[in-house]
């Protein structure tokens, strides 16, 4: 099963849940891979030590336009659906905006003057770490200055040697990077806080997941801190609460030390095993309903 762990914004405990869940699943003897899809700020490996066994670049081709051959006929720009080319015949100006290029090849096909060639651009890297437990953590990391993290996220998510059971640690937010990560999952775990802000973000995430027709459940982090509105809303919508993580100083301390509470405290190991059980039950129910 592929499970995405996501949150509407950063700092709600998404990585806390994904790393501890990963640990608890391994302890049960189930092979599992954890993939850090937050390519702009990957941080999963801060909680594990392991050896890097593989690293490969994610490469995109981008067009290069040669001024000396270009006649400024404007055809390549007309063919580009992504506004990635600016062509101003009067000013004799032509420019590719690499950030916007989707590597579709249309401009190359359009140019009749052989003025366009391609070069390779490195968008980021996928690294694979082998932990002492034998499990692997895969990390996508965007190169500095690259605009869209999507190709690197997809590159990490398609790591060919991942186990049948994989956890995707999603990028924060509800835009394309999150959608790319949720889209491949059989089940999505939304981590939130019981505050008005948390509820607001949760509503947006839920809307997106409904559009994608995903099954999902909610983990409430730092429960007991905010108000009741989130519980009322979840009840009204019939969205399951998979777990509530209490506000606990020990959790905060262990997390800030870069360690896993499920490893330090057996009670929490049990807690996360339980969460995994609930996810499986719930995902099973959802798929049998379809």
């Amino acid at each position: 099963m592929k499970i995405t762990i996501a949150s509407g914004k950063g700092g709600t405990g998404k990585t806390f849940v994904s790393t501890n869940l990963f640990f608890a699943i391994q302890q049960e003897g189930t092979p599992v891979t954890l993939i850090d899809c937050d390519a702009e700020e990957p941080n999963v490996m801060e909680f594990f030590s392991g050896i890097r066994t593989e690293q490969y670049p994610i490469i995109q081709k981008v067009p290069v336009i040669h001024d000396d051959l270009c006649t400024y006929c404007d055809k390549c720009r007309e063919y580009c659906n992504y506004n990635a080319i600016i062509c101003l015949p009067q000013a004799k100006h032509i420019q590719v905006l690499e950030d916007l290029c989707h590597d579709c090849g249309a401009c190359l096909a359009a140019c009749q003057y052989n003025a366009i060639t391609e070069k390779e651009k490195t968008l980021g890297h996928v690294s694979v770490y082998s932990l002492s437990s034998g499990a692997s953590v895969v990390e996508g990391r965007l190169s500095i200055g690259v605009y869209s993290p999507i190709p690197v996220i997809k590159g990490a998510m398609h790591y060919p040697h991942q186990e049948e059971n994989t956890l995707f640690d999603a990028p924060p937010g509800i835009s394309c990077p999150f959608i790319a990560t949720a889209d491949k999952a059989d089940y999505v775990v939304l981590v939130t806080e019981p505050t008005p802000f948390g509820l607001n973000d949760l509503k947006l995430s839920v809307q997106t997941l409904d559009t994608l027709q995903k099954s999902y459940g909610v983990v409430i982090n730092r429960s007991g801190l905010g108000d009741n509105s989130i519980y009322e809303w979840l009840e009204e919508k019939g969205i399951p609460i998979l777990a509530e993580i209490p506000f606990d100083k020990e959790i905060a301390r262990v997390y800030s030390e870069g360690r896993l509470i499920a490893e330090v405290n057996p009670g929490y190991r049990y807690f996360f095993s339980n969460l995994y059980q609930k996810i499986q039950n719930h995902a099973g129910n959802c798929s049998s309903q379809r």
């Binding site: 720009r77 992504y82 506004n83 990635a84 600016i86 101003l88 009067q90 000013a91 100006h93 905006l97």
Partner: peptide
């Protein structure tokens, strides 16, 4: 309402009109 590339497409539009100055509330770095 373009999802992507509204900035460059708008540059294309105003520049092709031959303007020498553009007045707006803000411009992105790119």
């Amino acid at each position: 309402d373009s999802l992507e590339g509204a900035g460059p497409a708008s540059i294309q539009l105003v520049a092709s009109k031959g303007v020498e100055k553009v007045i707006s509330g803000e411009f992105g770095a790119k």
